[in-house]
Simulated assay, not measured.
Amino acid sequence: MKEFTMHIFQHIPFLRVHAAKVGSVLDEWKGYKQSVPTFGAILLNEDMSQVLLVQSYWSRASWGFPKGKVNKDEDPYRCAIREVLEETGFDISRLIDKNDFIEAVVNEQTVRLYVVTGINTETKFQPRTRNEIKNVEWFPIADLPSNKKDITSRVKMGVGPNAFFMVLPFIKRLKRWIQEKQQGGSQVFRRNRQKSVGEVEVSQSKNKRQQFAQVIQAEMQEMQALKQMQELQAMKQDVHSSPPARVARRSDANSRSQKPSFKRQLFTDQLAPAPQQPQPHCHHHQPPHQQAVERNHPVRAKESSAPTRCDDFQFSAPSWVNFKFNRKAILACLEL
């Protein structure tokens, strides 16, 4: 293209002065070409199972929708009518709906295609332009590929997905449009009809990422809860697997309390439960140590047998609830 443009600039006098900057001129021209929007139509048969595609005269292996660039100050739907008439010879002016269209951005160029239904498959199409459209044919929508890796068209029609590269950006949205139209809910589609394919894909990928993050978070919480439950079960197993404490019952008929079945804790802050009737002195409940002191050392036993309060110094444990120590008697035994 650059070489051809340089020959043109050298042979045309008023362009010859710009021959030194052919590269920048071509770049500006390409930018302008991509900035001009393209309008066309998607022609569907009566039951919306087939779509009309055209094949370019120069690109023999590619198929696309009838469309073209808009002229200056031309309405988009009028541009679509004109392009369809030029490339197929069919007039859609009475069938087109200005509110039913699918718009996408393909190669930085805006492409809007108006959806037209109810076309008879027996219609004879005759392009009105020379050396622009080679073939006009109907294709089953179900056989068209949805992406570049979809080989449905190759299997069913013998045509690879690359031949429909201009159709791929619209197939998924066209199928949704047909499904909603058949269900009578086209308003949902119209609310999103002006979104480009890139915007739709970004929105879908964002929703998928959010859903994936929520699933991962839920699984982590579930695993954490399961881990905590397993730890609690392990603790319970450790407790139950320890040797059980011996259970003793008091000989007193009025008391039927049972010792707790857990490990002994000899020295705790918990005091022994108070008796039903207060006993001011503890000399009636002398431990064996004090009895031994009285037998061997009567004097020392007499000094140590002085009435003392039970709460002078007490040790209690869950496993020895009713056992009490006499501090003075123990000290007297230690002096021996």
Rank of each mutant, 00 (worst) to 15 (best):
I151K: 13
P243T: 09
R193S: 07
G31D: 12
N254Q: 14
T38D: 03
P145G: 01
L334Y: 07
Q237H: 05
E132I: 14
L44N: 03
F4T: 09
E303M: 10
C333S: 10
W320Q: 07
V299L: 14
A19H: 10
F39Q: 08
V167F: 03
K227Y: 10
Q237F: 05
V136L: 00
G64T: 11
Q210N: 08
P244M: 00
R16D: 06
R176T: 15
A306N: 07
C333N: 09
V202M: 14
K156T: 12
Q204N: 07
K134F: 02
V136E: 02
I330R: 09
L336C: 12
E83S: 09
S59I: 06
H284T: 04
F90G: 03
E222V: 07
D91W: 02
I8H: 02
P140L: 00
D100A: 10
F323C: 13
G198I: 11
H285A: 08
A245D: 03
D47Y: 01
I133K: 04
L43F: 02
W177V: 06
Q217F: 09
Q34Y: 14
D143K: 08
E222T: 13
Q233N: 07
V293N: 04
E199W: 03
V247K: 11
P275Y: 02
L232W: 05
E108S: 09
L44V: 07
I8L: 07
T123K: 07
H7I: 15
A329I: 07
S205A: 15
N71Q: 13
F313C: 07
N192V: 15
M166I: 09
M1T: 14
S56N: 05
L95M: 15
S35W: 01
S304T: 12
L266P: 04
Q187I: 08
K328C: 08
Y114L: 02
K149T: 09
Q217H: 06
D27M: 05
L85A: 10
Q55K: 10
K302R: 14
E199K: 07
N162E: 13
T123D: 00
P288K: 11
L43K: 00
T129V: 14
Q224N: 07
L113E: 03
Y114T: 02
A41E: 01
C282S: 12
D269F: 13
R82K: 15
Q233H: 11
Q228A: 12
I42Y: 02
T308N: 12
D238W: 10
D312W: 09
I330T: 07
P280V: 08
N147Q: 04
N135M: 07
D238C: 11
E83L: 06
Q183K: 15
Q221V: 13
E201G: 05
R209Y: 08
R112W: 00
A272G: 08
V51E: 02
S59G: 10
N45Q: 03
Q10P: 04
S251H: 12
S196L: 04
V25R: 14
K21Q: 05
V25H: 05
F323Q: 13
V54F: 01
S305H: 08
K148D: 04
S257N: 14
P318L: 00
M1Y: 13
F14P: 12
Q183V: 02
L271K: 14
G184S: 03
A253R: 14
H284M: 00
L15P: 05
F90S: 05
M1Q: 06
R191A: 15
G68S: 03
V106A: 01
D238A: 13
Q204I: 15
S316G: 10
W320L: 11
I81P: 00
K206T: 15
F9P: 02
F165P: 00
E231V: 06
Q211E: 12
